[in-house]
């Protein structure tokens, strides 16, 4: 394996360890006695003592961390105070919904962002370039949740074309599932679409001015062949790795989209957990998201290594 990949792998381990310290440290930020926060309305000293013993709160902080990390390594992230279910089970139940939303959003971003970036680079300073730039800047400036509300207002309330929210499992009805996911995917994908568009444009502008593209043109190849077969293939290398990184962002962005469209996914789980003071679930979601993000980062490095022959040299 390449030294670069080994170094990235080696760096990921201490990073993950520090993430666990940060996530565990969140619990220490609770104002006052954590046992009181966990007990909610109950103030019975016996119950509080039982909570302290159960969560090792009567032990030194280092030992509490050791118990917690030991549990996390075996997949035990604690029990949800609200539903009394294991946090890992809750996260894994909600995850497929969010993953579907993130995957569809990425599809939207790739399907719109890359062609828009290519057109914008091929015809710089044209009307298409300006339109693509405006769309790109808007995608970065419009908050997802507001875009979601506006789409509900127009598409659902005014035109009655799509359901305003809710989720239908694909196992139940694939058509209804896709119908319920169109607007959320467009909303969540809007930001990444803008980023993809800007990066594709910038990468294409760089590649289109390179010597080998000039050579391809000099050989008399059709412009379409030059752009798609020669320029785009190389310009896509950084965009593909960026896509892997943005999957992590989509997991995070899903929090708002799921709240707006009332989708019972990972994001709604963490928001509900915050209001229910279900701290174990909040910690579990943060740990899971951060771990996924680190793995996606590693995946992006591996993808870059695989698709870029110069990295293997």
């Amino acid at each position: 394996m390449n030294a670069f990949l080994l170094r990235r792998l080696a760096i990921s381990i201490p990073t993950l360890l520090i993430v666990t310290v940060i996530v565990f440290g969140l619990q220490q930020m609770l104002p006052g006695d954590p046992a009181l926060a966990l007990a909610g309305e109950i103030r019975d000293p016996e119950v509080l003592a039982a909570i302290r013993a159960k969560y090792h709160l009567d032990q030194p902080v280092a030992l509490q961390y050791a118990y917690w990390i030991g549990g996390a390594l075996t997949g035990d992230l604690g029990i949800s105070l609200k539903s009394n279910q294991p946090v890992t089970e809750l996260v894994l139940t909600k995850l497929p919904v969010t993953l579907e939303l993130a995957a569809l959003s990425m599809l939207v971003a790739l399907a719109i962002g890359i062609p828009a970036g290519v057109i914008s680079a091929v015809k710089p300073n044209s009307v298409w370039d300006h339109v693509a730039n405006v769309i790109g800047l808007s995608g970065l400036s419009i908050p997802h949740f507001w875009l979601g509300i506006m789409l509900i207002l127009l598409v659902s309330v005014e035109w009655g074309l799509l359901p305003p929210g809710g989720f239908v499992s694909p196992a139940e009805s694939l058509g209804d599932n896709l119908e319920s996911m169109i607007m959320p995917a467009l909303v969540l994908g809007s930001g990444v679409t803008a980023v993809m568009m800007r990066h594709t444009r910038s990468a294409m502008l760089g590649v289109l001015n390179s010597d080998y593209v000039r050579t391809a043109r000099a050989k008399g190849l059709f412009e379409r062949t030059v752009v798609i077969k020669h320029a785009l293939r190389n310009a896509l290398i950084p965009v593909v790795t960026l896509g892997a990184l943005y999957l992590g962002e989509l997991l995070s962005g899903a929090v708002l989209t799921e709240s707006v469209f009332n989708i019972p996914g990972f994001g709604k789980l963490v928001v509900d957990a915050v209001f229910n003071r279900d701290y174990a679930v909040v910690q579990g979601v943060v740990l899971f998201t951060a771990s996924a993000y680190i793995l996606l980062n590693l995946g992006a490095d591996f993808a870059y290594f695989l698709i870029n022959p110069r990295m293997r040299g």
Binding site: I11, T15, L16, I18, V19, V21, I22, V23, L26, Q27, M29, L30, P31, G248, E249, L251, S252, G253, V255, L256, V270, V271, A273, V274, R277, Y279, V282, Q283, V285, V286, T289, A290, S291, Y293, I294, N297
Partner: peptide, 19 residues
């Protein structure tokens, strides 16, 4: 790196939840 690994909004939500 560890802070960057925690997505912006999730970390902000978690901090707001605990603080």
């Amino acid at each position: 790196d560890a802070l960057l690994a925690c997505p912006f909004l999730i970390l902000a939500i978690a901090l707001a939840a605990f603080l």
